[in-house]
Design a protein around this nucleic acid. Structure first.
Lengths: 252, 252
DNA sequence: GCACAAACTACCAAATTCTGTCAAATTATA
DNA sequence: TATAATTTGACAGAATTTGGTAGTTTGTGC
């Protein structure tokens, strides 16, 4: 096996496992411990993995939009600004679908003053308004997707197929001129149902999502009404998006 | 297991349990007490956990969590014991309905080793297994009943009407020879659907519930298979219940 | 307040892992 | 095909981590 192939496989394995021991890896790629150490040193200098005593781990294990942890602080400031700007687009007493995903979560945090009716499949969003009596929250049913805190499966799709709302606040894994992408195939069906159910579709996307492709295409750009993002988006892509009729709001 | 992986797992475990003993942790990560102590010292200096005598607890218990997670519940020790005893009644890989309510919640905390399939309308229970990949959790849909963290309404009733499970682990507000009572009328419909869906019905009731009446009658005693309670229940009521064919388990 | 048990700290020897080096093997090049 | 360049696996010594232990501290019950 070539050095490059080894490194690719090590990286892929770590993406899945988060941690791995040296023995584990050297068996995986069928090479000596020395070679694996060298590979890890290379990968570390590229920044994707971090060497540890006895093995390696991912540098940023949960950079995923939909992987939810309480202490997720990736691009926190940007996400908060985006969330605030996004919440301002919602009118009083409107019905709002809130997607799973960290950026949509931050938008939900600022919705309380609008006394909206929220419909969501996100456990973190549900928890957010557990104590608030003015905000009515309808939780879709579904099976918990481990770690993401999202309810998935036919129950969830069905729940969103049966409602109609004013606004959908959406997250996604990436956006290009080809459309909006998502890395979790199970979520795509649900998100499509959300988009169908909503009069107006807002996507919250921080700048890291622009130009990034992902596994599944969620929808093409014609389905999107508004995108809320931060100020670090490349101007070229942004004007292209504007040309295709999407309203773009820069949160500061 | 590597030091870093140990620390991550300890942190994740504490996120779920809020507190854990040294023994518990050293068994969890399969390392000596010394190593766990060192790990805890590292984690403490990072600020995520706080060491205590005999174990460790979370520094900042999740604020977006539930009021009743663990701390402020009455009769905590009894409820934990009841929960533990109740979980022992569940077989491996069984499907289990877990009712909302603190006592049922404590039972859910001990279910993980059984790798069950859980169906619940309780947000706290859903959150509990958000991180666990071995436990499949199906969340019923519904509207959040403020503060209790329970999903109520027709969506919830419907979800439970469509399933069949091995065991239902139930909470209630009171029990007399007339039947089981509950104070929240909105919950009663749902609980009845839960009972209908289950092969076996277990009620978790601490001693304060015995002889206490409440607003709505949930079901009569013939619907109950087993009651798990603590050791402070008056003997008279207990033998009456036994006479009516209910298995009573005293948790210690 | 005292005695006792449990838990903690500090330290040590053993085990594991890492670093740097080098000859053998593989690959690229003339 | 012969030669140079690179990569590989192995090894010795250095560094780190681990599990246990002795002595001290903390918490608990009487």
């Amino acid at each position: 096996m070539q050095a490059e192939e080894r490194q690719t496989r090590i990286e892929a394995y770590l993406q899945k496992m988060e941690f791995a021991s040296l023995d584990e890896l050297s068996e995986l790629v069928d090479a000596s411990a020395s070679s694996v150490r060298r590979d890890l040193a290379t990968l570390e200098s590229k920044g994707t993995v971090k060497r540890t005593h006895g093995g390696a781990r991912l540098t940023a294990p949960r950079t995923d939009e939909f992987a939810f942890t309480a202490r997720d602080s990736h691009q926190l400031a940007e996400k908060e600004a985006i969330g605030k700007a996004c919440a301002e687009l919602v009118g009083s007493n409107q019905s709002v679908i809130v997607d799973a995903g960290t950026t949509a979560y931050h938008a939900a945090r600022y919705l309380e003053p609008k006394t909206p009716q929220i419909i969501t499949n996100s456990l973190p969003v549900a928890n957010l308004y557990n104590a608030a009596t003015q905000v009515e929250v309808l939780v879709s049913g579904g099976v918990i997707y481990p770690r993401l805190g999202v309810l998935v499966g036919p129950h969830a799709v069905e729940a969103f197929s049966k409602v109609h709302v004013d606004v959908a606040i959406m997250s996604a894994g990436g956006i290009t001129m080809e459309g909006i992408m998502n890395s979790h195939a199970l979520l795509v069906d649900i998100q499509r149902a959300m988009i169908r159910a909503a009069q107006k579709v807002i996507f919250c996307l921080d700048h890291t999502k622009f130009g990034r492709k992902s596994v599944s295409i969620l929808c093409d750009l014609s389905a999107v009404d508004t995108i809320v993002t931060d100020s670090k988006v490349p101007e070229t892509l942004m004007s292209q998006l504007r040309d295709s009729g999407i309203r773009i709001i820069i949160a500061r």
